[in-house]
Amino acid sequence: MRTWIRNNRGLLTFIFCLGLFRTAVADWNPVPTGSMRPTILEGDVVLVNRLAYDLKIPLTNLSLARLGEPQRGDIATFSSPKDGTRLIKRIVGLPGDTIEVRNNRLYVNGQRAAYTELERVTEEVRQGIYGEATRQIEQINGNRRQVQFFSTRGSDVSFGPVQIPADQFFMMGDNRNNSEDSRYIGFIPRENLIGQAGHVLVSADIKRDWSPRLDRTLSRLDQE
C-alpha cells in the first residue's frame, strides 16, 4: 500500500486539491428534476460559484468570511433544511421581506409581480405522459424571469403571507406547480446556501437517449 501511495502521490494530490476546489471555490452540479423549468432543464450540469456569498471551511457549513450578499433573483444551490438534499432554486425573498402567493401570483412586501401574456406549451410530466402548461415572464423589483404553471385541477396555488426571519431566505422554483421549495420546506438559513449558479456547463437529454444539447453548452442562466 505504501509503495502504491508513493507511486501515485501526484494523482492523489490532484484528487485532493480537486476535492478542496469543489467544496470551497467552484462546483458543478447535475440537475435531475424539472423544478426550475424552463430556465434549467433535467440533464443540465450547472457551474456553481461557491465564493459568491461566503468563504467556508471545506466540507463544512462554517463561514470564515462573508464575501457577498444574496440578491433577489439569484439562482442558488443549498442544502434542504428538511433532509439535507442539495437543491437548486431561485431566491425570491430576502431577510425581512414579506412573501405571499395568491393564485400563482407572487407578492413581495405587498407589491404584486407583473406578468406578460400567457404562452401555452405541452410539457412532459413523466416519461410518456404530457400535460398542458403556461409560461409567462414574471417581473418584480427589477428582476425578470420566465416561470411556468401546469394547467391542472388545484394548480392555482396560494401561500402566506409570511415574513422572512433574519439571515434566512425564501426560495422558489421557476416551475411553480412542480417544485418543492420554501412553500413546503420552510425558510433557508444562510449557512445552508452553497453558492450561486451562473452557467450551464453541458447538457444532455436524460429523458430520451442522453443526446447532448449543444445549444445549452456554456450558456448563461438568466440573472436579470
Rank of each mutant, 00 (worst) to 15 (best):
D156P: 04
G110C: 10
F150T: 12
F78V: 00
R120E: 15
E180T: 13
E100K: 12
A114G: 05
S79T: 06
S158L: 13
S151N: 15
S155V: 06
R112T: 13
Y130I: 00
N177M: 07
D181H: 01
N109H: 01
T134S: 11
N109P: 00
Q146V: 15
R153N: 10
G128E: 04
I99Q: 03
Q168E: 14
S179G: 10
S151L: 12
V121S: 04
I164P: 07
R86K: 12
G142K: 01
Q148G: 01
N178R: 12
T98H: 08
E69K: 12
E69A: 14
I99S: 09
I99V: 15
D181T: 00
V147M: 12
G154F: 15
L87K: 08
S151M: 11
P165W: 11
N103Q: 14
N175K: 03
G93R: 14
P95H: 01
L118T: 11
A133I: 02
E132G: 10
P81I: 10
R120W: 13
V162K: 12
D83A: 00
Q163R: 10
D156H: 14
N143V: 15
G110K: 09
T116N: 01
I99P: 00
K82M: 06
D156C: 02
V125D: 09
E138K: 06
G110Y: 08
F78I: 00
A113C: 03
T98L: 11
V147A: 07
I140H: 13
R144T: 02
V125K: 03
E132Q: 15
S179E: 00
P165C: 09
S79Q: 04
E124V: 10
D97M: 03
G154K: 15
R90V: 02
D97T: 08
Q111I: 12
R176Q: 07
K82V: 04
L94E: 00
F170C: 08
R153F: 04
L106I: 07
I164H: 08
F150Y: 14
R90S: 06
G96K: 07
Q111G: 01
T122M: 11
